[in-house]
Design a protein around this nucleic acid. Structure first.
Lengths: 251, 251
DNA sequence: CGATTGTTTGACGGGTCTCAAACTAAGTGG
DNA sequence: CCACTTAGTTTGAGACCCGTCAAACAATCG
């Protein structure tokens, strides 16, 4: 355990602290979480839907998609996770995986045992609350996904997704010219956006023509005009809870 | 406080116990939660999106929809709640409402102060875990909603929704002939399913013609053929976590 | 250099939306 | 009890967004 290096949990701590107040002792307890590193191959489930889990997965480097499939095997990505995200913290309290997990590119994950997470939540109720809050924020992102897929047309939907991804990779506000540091193919985009790869391609061209986005080498993407993109995607980042720290009523 | 009667929290306890194991003392603590009853008028927000909240809302009787709107004011219902559901338990840890709440029909809600919920979670870590798990199940329902809206056509989508609603109202497995005890208009259905009211009407006719569903008085609906409906909607109820009790690894 | 993966293009079809209006049921006031 | 109003349901015609199928093109890698 703990081989990459002892502070590999630092990005997780950072994510938690964006939304919750933690004491020095609590911070240390998070950093001391045990883990087992693992490499996830792209296009290959490392968690299967319905599987019973004993650990949660933390993304140290790369991109992970959460896949659900309908009866015909049509796959739909319901959320994506990047560096610093705890993919399935929820599995600590509901051990049956509601969706499959798959890396979209070669990804390093750290497996954190449920027992350690739950022990921490019991020893430090404030950490328990922070974990709970973490899951609640994830649910808020899902809500945004519902309205994205349900109400926005292909162009807005795609713009919105890139806004979210850019904002999350930048840990706040993205800059014009930034490159989203994860390769995502148009085929993967079609799974994310509930569109066909053909239509993704056409909308991509539309965003390029509007000088909002640019494709760069290896299926990566550059934000050319952040304000324009946010406008095209009707993007309001507040649901990500990355910047402000909402304080609970109870002290 | 506590006026309807002291055990009004019993349905909430039932919901929690379907998914978590609680001790006698913990059960009693849930039942003793303080609350303020309130009546919610249909088609009128009782919580606005972005509002800062001091209490969570429990549905004692009726239906509540969670609405999100895009910039143009297009509304989309992202989840519905019925008797026994704690609509926004999540607001206890994230006090800014991610969506508006509105009754779809005349509804009785009980407002439970966040302070009481958080105090309970701290005094009884096991209750904290149960609350956390409750929110995680809600998020799982949202995931199903994403694939429903994203991947299923109008007919399947509608069948799936009625399956979910029937299952939840029946607290498990619905029966042929059961009437879903909440009036829902086709206009409301269009907000739920991301369709137009016109198309909802046409799909409704298709389900009626297939002898799967029947409309009864006052916008209510009767399930004629449960197996057929579940098949038409590709419905698998496991994500609702109503029957089995998944036990966490940690004792 | 061939093999594989990802991107682009075109033609066509269909599911769903839009707009508009008629019809029905339920509730209200005179 | 009836006339009126309002909310909800139903129907039709036309347009458009996006899906399907098929094939060519480009880039990456061994």
């Amino acid at each position: 355990m703990n081989s990459p290096n002892p502070s590999s949990m630092a990005p997780f701590l950072r994510t938690l602290e964006a939304r919750s107040n933690l004491s020095a002792e609590e911070r240390q307890a998070i950093l001391n979480l045990p883990f087992v590193p693992a490499q996830a191959r792209p296009n290959h489930d490392f968690v299967k839907q319905g599987q019973v889990l004993t650990h949660s997965c933390f993304v140290l480097d790369g991109v992970v998609g959460s896949f659900k499939q309908d009866r015909d095997g049509n796959r739909q990505i319901v959320s994506v996770f990047i560096n610093g995200d705890m993919v399935d913290l929820h599995s600590a309290v509901l051990i049956e995986a509601p969706s499959a997990l798959q890396a979209l590119t070669s990804t390093t994950i750290l497996q954190v045992p449920h027992s350690a997470l739950l022990q921490l939540a019991r020893d430090y109720p404030n950490i328990g609350e922070a974990f709970w809050r973490h899951c609640v924020v994830d649910a808020g992102i899902l809500m945004e996904w519902v309205i994205n897929v349900g109400r926005r047309n292909a162009r807005k939907r795609m713009a919105h997704f890139f806004c979210e991804l850019a904002t999350r990779s930048a840990g706040g506000k993205p800059n014009d010219g930034m490159v989203i540091p994860y390769p995502i193919t148009q085929f993967q985009l079609s799974d994310i956006l509930s569109l066909t790869a053909v239509h993704v391609n056409r909308m991509m061209q539309a965003l390029r023509q509007a000088r909002l986005l640019e494709s760069v080498e290896r299926s990566k993407h550059r934000v050319l005009d952040w304000t324009g993109l946010a406008c095209a995607g009707e993007f309001d980042p507040s649901y990500l809870h990355l910047t402000d720290k909402p304080v609970a009523q109870f002290a």
